Simulated assay, not measured.
Amino acid sequence: MTDHLSIPTPAGTFDAIAAGPEDGRPVLLLHGFPEAAIAWEDVLYRLEREGVRAVAPDQRGYSPGVRPENAVDYGIDDLVGDVVAIADELGWGRFDLVGHDWGAAVAWHTADQHPDRLRTLTAVSTPHPAALAEAHKTDEDQHLRSQYMTEWRQPRTTERKMSANNFEAIRQMFDYRVTPGRIAEYILRLSEPGALTAALNWYRAGKPHGRIGKIDVPTLYVWSTEDVAFGSVAALDTENWVSAAYRFEMFEDVSHWVLEEVPDALTAVLLEHLGAH
Results as ranks from 00 to 15, higher is better:
Phe167Gly: 11
Ala104Ser: 10
Trp257Ser: 07
Ala18Ile: 10
Ala123Glu: 00
Arg53Gly: 07
Ala107Thr: 01
Leu196Thr: 00
Thr122Val: 13
Asp58Glu: 05
Glu159Val: 14
Ala169Glu: 15
Val55Trp: 13
Ser63Leu: 05
Ala18Thr: 10
Leu97Pro: 08
Asp58Ser: 06
Tyr186Asn: 03
Arg153Phe: 06
Arg171Met: 11
Gly61Leu: 03
Tyr221Met: 11
Val52Lys: 01
Asp15His: 14
Ala11Tyr: 04
Gly99Arg: 05
Val106His: 07
Asp101His: 02
Ala184Trp: 06
Leu144Val: 12
Gly12Val: 04
Val233Met: 08
Gln59Glu: 04
Val80Phe: 01
Lys207Phe: 13
Gly103Arg: 04
Glu89Arg: 13
Ala111Trp: 00
Leu121Ala: 06
Leu196Ile: 01
Pro68Lys: 07
Ala130Phe: 04
Glu168Val: 13
Ala205Glu: 00
Gly213Tyr: 12
Tyr186Cys: 04
Val233Ala: 15
Met162Leu: 15
Arg53His: 15
Leu259Ile: 15
Arg145His: 09
Asn165Lys: 11
Ala195Gly: 06
Pro26Arg: 00
Glu41Met: 04
Leu79His: 09
Glu151Phe: 13
Thr158Trp: 02
Glu134Cys: 02
Leu132Gln: 11
Tyr186Gln: 01
Pro155Phe: 01
Leu274Gln: 02
Gly181Phe: 10
Asp3Glu: 15
Pro34Phe: 03
Leu90Trp: 04
Lys161Leu: 11
Lys214Arg: 14
Trp102Ala: 02
Glu41Pro: 01
Leu5Ser: 03
Phe14Arg: 09
Leu97Arg: 10
Gly93Thr: 15
His114Arg: 09
Arg60Tyr: 03
Arg46Cys: 07
Glu272Pro: 03
Leu220Val: 12
Ala16Val: 07
Gly91Thr: 02
Ala71Asp: 11
Val72His: 12
Ile215Asn: 00
Gly32Val: 03
Ser232Gly: 02
Asn166Arg: 12
Ala111Val: 00
Ala123Gly: 00
Thr150Asn: 06
Leu200Cys: 00
Ala235Gln: 01
Glu168Ile: 11
Val258Pro: 01
Pro129Ile: 00
Ser125Val: 02
Ile7Thr: 10
Leu28Glu: 07
Pro10Asn: 04
Thr238Trp: 00
Ser63Pro: 05
Thr9Asn: 08
Ile183Met: 03
Ala199Leu: 03
Ala19Glu: 02
Ala71Ser: 14
Pro21His: 01
Glu50Ile: 06
Arg171Trp: 15
Ala205Trp: 01
Gly24Pro: 12
Leu121Met: 01
Ala265Asp: 15
Arg211Glu: 13
Glu252Asn: 03
Ser191Ala: 11
Phe33Ala: 07
Glu159Ile: 11
Gly93Arg: 14
Leu236Arg: 12
Glu69Gly: 07
Tyr45Phe: 09
Leu47Lys: 08
Asn165Phe: 12
Val233Arg: 13
Thr120Tyr: 13
Glu239Arg: 14
Ile212Ser: 13
Gln59Tyr: 05
Trp152Phe: 14
His109Arg: 12
Ser232Trp: 05
Thr120Pro: 02
Ile38Met: 04
Ile17Glu: 12
Ile7Asp: 14
Leu79Val: 05
Ala105Ser: 10
Gln113His: 08
Glu69Phe: 05
Asp264Tyr: 11
Gly81Trp: 08
Asp88Asn: 08
Ala135Ser: 13
Ser243Asp: 11
Asp253Met: 05
Thr179Ala: 15
Leu196Arg: 00
Asp23Ser: 12
